[in-house]
Simulated assay, not measured.
Amino acid sequence: MTMLLRPFLHDRLLHLLILLGLALACFAPFTLAQLPVAVDWPTIVTLCGLLILTRGIESSGYFNVLGRRLVLRFHTQRRLALFLVTAAALLSTVLTNDVALFILVPLTLTLKRYSALPINRLIIFEALAVNAGSLLTPIGNPQNILLWRHGGAGFAAFIWQMLPLAAVLVSSLLLLTWVAFSAERIQSTSQESSPPQWQRPLLWISAGLYLLFITALEVDLAVWGLLLVFVVFLLRARRILLSLDWSLLAVFIMMFVDVFLLTRLPLLQPALGYVSHLPAGGQYLMATGLSQVISNVPATILLLGSLPASTLLAWAVNIGGFGLLPGSLANLIALRMAKDPAIWWRFHLYSVPMLGWALLIGWALFLGIHAV
């Protein structure tokens, strides 16, 4: 019981969100019955399943094997960083940004066992990479799924409208990666003379359930998929369930509740009515700025009530994933998995300038395309 409660007692972000929710509740009209409905439960179910399965693969020890091979394969920090950033961007286009992070961040954390690498910086760049890569496809992130379903563009047409921004941002991030990481050879710090041991049964069970769970998500059977995962781990690896960061789910639940209460504030309602009357530049800044405060998925849901699912809105909310930590839920996932307090402020040293660059280049591309 102590193991389960410890994350909740020490999670300062969760405590802050609870206090914020209590403060908003004093001014926002709502009923208690509305609060459970405000939570995006499919997202919570998805996160829960991915948390369990990723910890299963991590506990199997296979990430140690793979991490050792990566250090031996890529001889410099720069090459390794370019590989991980490229992998994060590509995976996020087909597996969504959060799934890509659940695969790569635990793998990255194992690299510290074999070399003196800037692990925090690698994780930060992976978070930036999934934000840049996932904007390309309709299934890359939740906000694109919403925009794709509300808009009239087909799958290929959606990719075509996002391609210019995705190409420039991913290229810019790879250039920044080349500058930010040293060309020095990776110095091994491991004293292991033989390859690390790993638990094959746990890996195969976790990997098999991973594929089944992703399939269940695709066919809208996520709850049944989660139930299967939970039962198997309860029978075969109960300690993994006890050691999970369950407070992360509570953080996401409170974020949804706080966003709901924020949107119910009387002062905010008239402002939303004026959004559709803003010029294109105003809508662009509004969507990006709102994403910085309440995250780009809730911002998309909120703005789709006033704006069409246009290229401008799609670009703006995806750009809003950069910048401040709340801009994208993927940022929170990556930094939480790092388990290092220093990474929270270091993230903004790269993410905020990336937001400024994305805003400028996005607007320039938009004007250029519509001027043709």
Rank of each mutant, 00 (worst) to 15 (best):
L228C: 07
I319W: 05
R78F: 02
L14C: 03
G356V: 10
P308C: 12
R336L: 12
F83D: 09
A166Y: 04
E218W: 08
D40Q: 14
P279S: 14
F63L: 03
L329I: 15
G282I: 08
I52P: 03
A167F: 11
L22H: 06
L35E: 09
P196Q: 00
S134T: 03
S306R: 11
G305Y: 09
A250K: 03
L72E: 14
L285K: 10
W204S: 04
Y350E: 00
L325A: 02
S291V: 06
L267M: 12
W198H: 12
L267I: 14
P142S: 04
D11E: 11
A338F: 05
I145H: 00
L169C: 08
F260H: 14
A180N: 06
R200T: 07
W198S: 04
M254T: 14
A314Y: 06
L249D: 09
S115Y: 00
T86V: 07
W357T: 03
T215S: 10
I319R: 13
S310K: 11
A156W: 15
G305I: 01
A33D: 15
V352N: 06
A88P: 11
A237N: 03
M254C: 14
L165C: 03
R346P: 10
F74Y: 15
P106Y: 10
N97A: 11
V37E: 15
W204C: 08
L285N: 11
V275Y: 07
R12H: 13
I124W: 06
L122S: 01
L16F: 15
